[in-house]
Simulated assay, not measured.
Amino acid sequence: MLIYVLIATDRLEEKQEKKLRQNLPELQAALQAYAEANEANQVTLINDCESDDCEDWQLGISQPIKKHIQLNFPVNLFNDLAKKYEIDCEVGYIEDREREPVSYFGKHEGQGEAFLIAEYLGL
């Protein structure tokens, strides 16, 4: 199963949007480092932040998963980013090039738990 985890950029208040814009370079660097460190696991960086409107941004990773234990690393990474940068995250699966969200977690949604997310994904 191909999963994705994105930084949630929709329905942000002005203050949250400003903070996301300020932290964008650091978030991109952290996700790039994770993707490079996990290249053998086919982790791919999703980095489409060209729009002037934050709501259109797509920033995160995609990764093939076979067992629920493999969710621990990306979920922990995004939990850490959520804590540090006060963001929320969207997790889901990709099928036929379409993203299907299954859960949200982070600063406002609460900490993500890999086991529960695996259940939502059907792993």
Rank of each mutant, 00 (worst) to 15 (best):
L27G: 03
K66A: 09
K19M: 14
L27N: 04
K83L: 11
N72C: 08
N41I: 00
L20V: 08
L24E: 10
C54Y: 01
A40Y: 08
R97N: 13
I69F: 00
R99G: 00
A40V: 01
R99A: 01
Q22Y: 15
G60M: 04
Y85M: 11
E90N: 13
E95V: 02
N38V: 14
S103E: 09
E50N: 10
L123S: 05
R99V: 00
G60W: 02
I3A: 04
S103R: 09
N38C: 14
A37F: 12
I61H: 04
L31W: 02
Y34K: 12
G60V: 01
E13W: 10
N41S: 11
A82R: 04
I46P: 02
A29Q: 03
V91I: 04
A37T: 14
Q70V: 01
L6F: 09
P101E: 02
I7R: 07
I69D: 00
K67D: 00
E39V: 03
A30C: 14
R21V: 13
D56I: 08
Y4K: 05
E86N: 12
Q70D: 03
E17Y: 07
F73N: 08
V5N: 06
L81N: 08
F73D: 04
V91G: 02
H108P: 10
Y93T: 04
C54D: 01
L123E: 05
D52N: 15
Y4D: 04
Y85P: 03
V91T: 01
A37V: 07
I117A: 05
V91W: 01
R21D: 15
I69S: 00
D80T: 00
N79G: 11
V91C: 08
L123I: 02
Y34P: 07
E95C: 01
K107P: 12
Q63M: 11
A8E: 01
E86S: 13
Q70I: 03
E26G: 10
H108Y: 15
C54N: 02
G106Q: 05
Q22L: 15
D48F: 15
A8G: 13
Y34Q: 09
